[in-house]
């Protein structure tokens, strides 16, 4: 079991065995989180700062809870209300924080590559909690854990990722992870929401949802990211729902035991039928949230081990 990364910035640099390492450790935390005593000392004495340059409720709460259960001192910084409003650059913000000697930085930023840039300027471990349209590694890991638990394996599955691929960092991280683990990936969505050249990622692209869903084992729905659209990608929400909204009729094209996933927050009646989202026989959406805390605890523990192993470098 090896995991020698200093940061968790994306799925791209991870090897399949490292992904398995994180998931195996996360599995232990699932049991831990379901137990009576949900407090450990794994991160005791370490400081975790959550820096969210973009609104988030569930991801931030999940990271905060993960850190607290591991005994870290957790601080949340709402960056939208802070010094960046006063004109400070990202690098200056990073240097300022670095001087306070944190151990773990959890960063979300609206621009692709911003978390990488920040990671180059600090001495602590950085976890990417989502950067622009680039990556959201812990989401892909929690999705992988959810799939592995529901399907009993994480390879040779037919997996459809549906909807707004173009604006989705969740889609990119999931494509990278599921491809590394040797699954067959289909992307389904209107061509206006499909990134150019995405076929090069080793995926099949469909604009007909029924065809794309044929015999798939896993249906991952994506949120229509209205806030990232400058208009004109789709004609209307009703036409989008008609063509690309997941309902029982379209799901019938998939394998009979196919599971339905969604990273949340959902737009009910836009990308997914509300009743279907609540169907405990098909939907694993609540499981995804639970796996999220476990996966983040596992990732933070692995990074903390490396921190402690190389104190000279970290405390330079």
């Amino acid at each position: 079991m090896r995991f020698d990364h200093r940061h968790l910035l994306g799925i791209e640099p991870l090897r399949p065995d490292e992904i398995v390492t994180i998931l195996d450790l996360a599995e232990q935390y699932v049991r831990f989180n379901r137990g009576r005593d949900r407090h450990s000392q794994v991160l005791a004495g370490l400081t975790q700062i959550n820096m969210f340059f973009e609104n988030s409720t569930r991801t931030q709460a999940s990271f905060e809870l993960a850190g607290k259960r591991l005994g870290a001192d957790v601080m949340n910084m709402a960056m939208q209300a802070s010094s960046i409003k006063k004109g400070e650059t990202l690098i200056d913000t990073a240097l300022t924080l670095n001087a306070m000697r944190p151990d773990l930085l959890v960063v979300r930023h609206p621009q692709s590559g911003a978390v990488d840039l920040l990671a180059q300027k600090v001495n602590c471990a950085v976890i990417n909690a989502g950067d622009g349209r680039h990556e959201h590694p812990t989401q892909a890991l929690l999705d992988a854990l959810t799939i592995r638990r529901a399907k009993g394996r994480l390879h040779r599955l037919n997996i459809a990722i549906c909807g707004d691929i173009a604006h989705s960092r969740v889609a990119r991280s999931n494509i990278l992870l599921l491809h590394k683990m040797e699954n067959r990936i289909r992307l389904i969505g209107p061509p206006t929401l499909m990134p150019t050249g995405i076929e090069a990622f080793g995926v099949e692209v469909y604009d007909d949802m029924r065809k794309g869903l044929e015999d798939v084992d896993v249906v991952m729905m994506l949120r229509l990211q209205k806030e990232r659209m400058d208009g004109g990608f789709i004609p209307s929400e009703r036409e989008y729902y008609h063509r690309y909204g997941l309902d029982a009729e379209k799901l019938a094209c998939a394998a009979p035991d196919a599971i339905v996933m969604h990273p949340g927050p959902m737009n009910r009646g836009v990308e997914i039928d509300g009743t279907l989202a609540d169907d405990i026989n098909r939907s694993v959406i609540q499981d995804q949230v639970e796996m999220g805390v476990a996966v983040r605890m596992a990732a933070m523990e692995l990074l903390a081990r490396n921190l402690r192993a190389r104190p000279s470098e970290v405390r330079a």
């Binding site: 208009g231 004109g232 789709i234 004609p235 209307s236 009703r238 036409e239 008609h242 063509r243």
Partner: peptide
């Protein structure tokens, strides 16, 4: 010239 119509419908 700002938003496409509901071409499918």
């Amino acid at each position: 010239g700002r938003e496409m119509t509901e071409i499918s419908f």
